[in-house]
Design a protein around this nucleic acid. Structure first.
Length: 510
DNA sequence: CTCACTCGGATCTGGGGC
DNA sequence: GCCCCAGATCCGAGTGAG
């Protein structure tokens, strides 16, 4: 099975969508083959719908909606044309139309009458169950020599020498360990082949259908789900869609410790026997409060040793939730920023100099360097002279640090990052470690295709387009605006797609 | 059903500066 | 008294595994 399992009805593709979302919700929900049925039966939508639907006759597309897609870098005439042709088929379909028109638009007039048949009109809805079943490849009960890579199912020979044996020595299969025995055929569609290579990262546990959608916009390449717990002492479940070769990967050396006690030996003497944690959960951006730490300390101080089950349960739950470490008698504390830097594979003091809160925020949003470097390691032999990199949502420079630690020279890096403190961190690190050219861009919207073309002409093309889009609207821990690929943050992903598309077509043309 | 886990955000609070 | 900022605090749902 090379690609997603497709179903024809797309019934639950966007079920997490809030329904009263005005102009777009209805058309999103109507995505798919059953759109006409949806629109005719969806009469319980609250309030008057302002949905843009050309089928409604005279009502044209709203200026705000047009502007939204223009802000994403599409020309107005393309937006209008795509909206007209798309009708009620939903925003996904609309984006695909936009991308198609943009690509074709290089050679064709906009009103040339593109055959809409060339654009998928149905929402394919893969069985999401299958996606996450690939977390762990281990044979049940066996000590696998394979990496936690869904692509590596078929061959032990692809595992790194002497490396992968370390990966799973102590791991339970937290995701069931069902080995589906499903070799993943890595035959990329021709238009997905590099160069440029691309690498897109996002949280694995996104709402239903999100990965299906992301995948569809990236040549239907199946994401590679990897938990960074195989690379360091903290979990980090992420999906990566890329067109890199899968063979001959190698890990960064030295291999980081993969248990808490190895990573932080000084905690051993305080670690109670009834705390079974050997690794941390996913490092997040928010930290526990001092009040909670005090509550835990008081509860333990007033208990026997070992404490009664009720107290143990309370303390363990909070420790797991907030990634607390034992730093004294009855005393737990959150990880320090430099400890997070270490776990994530960054050099010491990489983020030092900004406020503590900002360090936590930046680190919590970052790549795990060893994990990403493992995937990128195949580039080292391919680019002995160095690479030109387009880096999206660079944050504190996880991709750049990974390439650097792999010994890959970066001739030019164009980095798009909104946060000023993050840009400063990357700039500072760059000036200390690199000889190449770093160009930092704060606003992705200013990276127009004209500007991309100018860069391509200047540096001779990009070798790697890498990015992890901010996931504040995708992660399960976000209770407020978990709106998948439909919220305002979603445009960042579509920016990535747009610009990747643009880079490819420009490079093919030149 | 219960349980565990999740690249977070809105609001409050307190201090500094004016 | 007021604004501003940064830190502190409190807030819970979606999802999958068992």
């Amino acid at each position: 099975m090379a690609h997603w399992v497709r179903e024809s009805d797309g019934s639950d593709s966007f079920e997490w969508d809030s329904d009263g979302n005005g102009e777009e919700a209805a058309s999103f929900n109507a995505a798919g083959a059953s759109s006409s049925a949806m629109t005719s039966t969806n009469t319980d939508a609250p309030g008057p719908s302002t949905r843009v639907a050309n089928g409604n006759g005279k009502a044209g597309p709203s200026a705000a909606l047009v502007q939204k897609y223009m802000d994403m870098g599409f020309a107005e005439e393309i937006v209008l044309k795509a909206m007209k042709d798309n009708g009620d088929n939903g925003a996904d379909s609309l984006i695909e139309l936009l991308l198609t028109y943009q690509e074709l638009g290089n050679d064709l007039k906009v009103d040339n009458g593109f055959a809409s048949g060339c654009v998928p009109q149905t929402v394919d809805d893969s069985d999401d169950d299958d996606i996450l079943e690939n977390w762990d490849d281990e044979d049940a009960g066996g000590r696998s020599t394979r990496v936690a890579s869904s692509f590596d199912d078929s061959g032990d020979e692809t595992a790194g020498d002497g490396y992968c044996g370390n990966l799973s020595d102590y791991e339970d299969n937290s995701y069931g360990g069902r080995n589906k025995g499903r070799p993943v055929d890595r035959s990329l569609p021709s238009q997905a082949m590099g160069p440029p290579y691309f690498y897109y990262e996002n949280v694995a546990l996104a709402p239903k259908g999100v990965w299906t959608t992301i995948s569809r916009f990236l040549y239907d390449i199946q994401p590679e789900f990897v938990d960074s717990k195989y690379f360091c002492a903290a979990a980090r479940k992420r999906g990566y869609i890329h067109n890199l070769p899968l063979e001959n990967r190698s890990p960064l050396l030295p291999i980081p410790p993969k248990t808490i006690s190895e990573a932080f030996p000084h905690t051993r003497r305080w670690w109670p026997s009834w705390d079974p944690r050997r690794q941390f959960n996913c490092l997040q951006t928010c930290m526990s409060s001092a009040k909670l730490l005090e509550r835990i300390r008081v509860a333990l101080t007033n208990s026997s040793d070992p404490p009664p089950p009720r107290v143990q349960k309370f303390v363990l739950e909070e420790c797991r939730k907030w990634n607390l470490a034992w730093v004294g008698l009855n005393k737990v504390a959150p990880l320090e920023p430099d400890e997070m830097e270490f776990l994530l594979g960054f050099p010491k003091d990489h983020t030092r100099g900004i406020s503590r809160t900002e360090r936590y925020r930046s680190l919590g949003n970052s790549f795990q360097v060893d994990t990403v470097a493992y995937h990128l390691s195949v580039l080292k032999d391919m680019y002995p002279q160095g690479m030109n990199v387009l880096s999206f949502f660079s944050g504190i420079g996880g991709a750049e640090v990974a390439l650097h630690r792999l010994g890959i020279r970066m001739k030019t890096v164009i980095s798009v990052e909104k946060s000023e403190v993050n840009r400063t961190i990357l700039k500072s690190w760059w000036s200390q470690t690199q000889t190449g050219l770093l160009i930092e861009i704060s606003d992705v919207q200013t990276l127009t295709s004209e500007r991309i073309e100018a860069y391509v002409r200047r540096i001779g093309g990009f070798d790697l387009v890498i990015g992890g889009s901010p996931c504040n609207n995708l992660a399960g821990s976000n209770r407020h605006h978990r709106d998948g690929l439909e919220g305002e943050h979603s445009s960042l992903f579509y920016h990535y797609v747009r610009i990747l598309d643009s880079v490819k077509s420009i490079m093919e043309r030149l």
